[in-house]
């Protein structure tokens, strides 16, 4: 884009704005990141490795991966289905659905967790029935999955809805007019059109699924080696003054964030390229 004269600030203003932004970023993002890694490695790499190798830590890592492996695919399916429905059809209650998709963003995660306790907890609505049939949801893995799915369901849909709206339904109509059935249309036309946006949404969804604290904390019960995810494990260790342990696990989460960030930039770059290709 060409900058016109009227939108160009003078050099001093430019420099001070950039400096302010950089200082802000350094203080709030870079410094904490450095602190996490330096605390984790304070007593040498051996202590760091021991902390990560601890059976409870390993159990937390496994649980976190399991939760992500269940909730991310669920939300891919939900996200695609919801955006497809919203952008390709018109039906009563459409705008309500759009609003509801945003609900997890506007509700405090703690409240989200509490909803599930109220539904499935021992004194909850369905609690007695569940106890009778020996099904454990709260303070067990199913509860954590439920809370995580709830918290992360906007990510894929939010990414896809604007993209699919912009693309319209011409391509799908063209495919159908050429004799393609619904599945062929989705697989050969829609999915390739949305793949970069979808991947981007999945990435954000995954990062949140692994990092969620509030909602998971309410439903987990904090049973070591059983219902502790990585973020919960970090908190427990920290409260027990095991700083090396806490920061070691935290550094893994920070690493995940960094990888997500890099992958995100790569995707954005591909995404733009792809979009540009479509325009010219």
């Amino acid at each position: 884009m060409n900058r016109t004269r009227s939108t160009t600030e003078n050099r001093l203003t430019q420099a001070s704005l950039i400096a302010a932004a950089l200082a802000f970023l350094a203080f709030f993002l870079l410094l904490p990141l450095i602190a996490v890694f330096s605390e984790a490695l304070e007593q040498g790499f051996g202590a760091f490795a021991d902390a990560v190798n601890n059976p409870d830590a390993l159990a937390a890592i496994r649980l976190t991966l399991l939760i992500a492996m269940i909730s991310v695919p669920l939300n891919i399916v939900f996200g695609i289905a919801a955006s497809w429905a919203i952008t390709k059809f018109s039906f009563p209650g459409k705008s309500l659905l759009i609003t509801l998709i945003d609900l997890p963003f506007s509700v405090s995660p703690v409240v989200s967790g509490l909803i599930f306790v109220l539904l499935f907890g021992a004194h909850g609505l369905l609690g007695p029935w569940l106890a009778e049939h020996d099904v454990k949801i709260i303070f067990a893995v199913p509860g954590i999955v439920l809370a995580t799915v709830f918290i992360t369901f906007p990510f894929v849909a939010r990414e896809l809805i604007p993209l699919m709206m912009e693309q319209g339904k011409d391509d799908e109509e063209a495919a159908v007019s050429l004799g393609a059935n619904g599945w062929q249309t989705f697989w050969h036309v829609t999915l390739p059109n949305i793949r970069w946006g979808l991947l981007y949404g999945v990435l954000l969804c995954n990062a949140r699924a692994m990092g969620e604290f509030g909602a998971v904390s309410v439903v987990s019960g904090h049973i070591r080696g059983e219902t502790n995810t990585m973020p919960l494990h970090v908190e427990i260790l920290y409260n027990e003054y095991d700083f090396v342990g806490a920061f070691a696990v935290a550094s893994l989460l920070a690493l995940l964030a960094l990888v997500t960030l890099v992958a995100r930039s790569v995707l954005e770059w591909r995404f733009d390229l792809h979009h540009e290709g479509a325009r010219h």
Binding site: D170, D171, E173, A174, V176, S177, L178, G179, V189
Partner: peptide, 16 residues
């Protein structure tokens, strides 16, 4: 549309 056997050319081409 698929069963009618018509060829449709879209205004903005709608190429894949």
């Amino acid at each position: 549309v698929g069963e009618r056997g018509v060829g449709f050319v879209f205004q903005h081409y709608a190429l894949f």
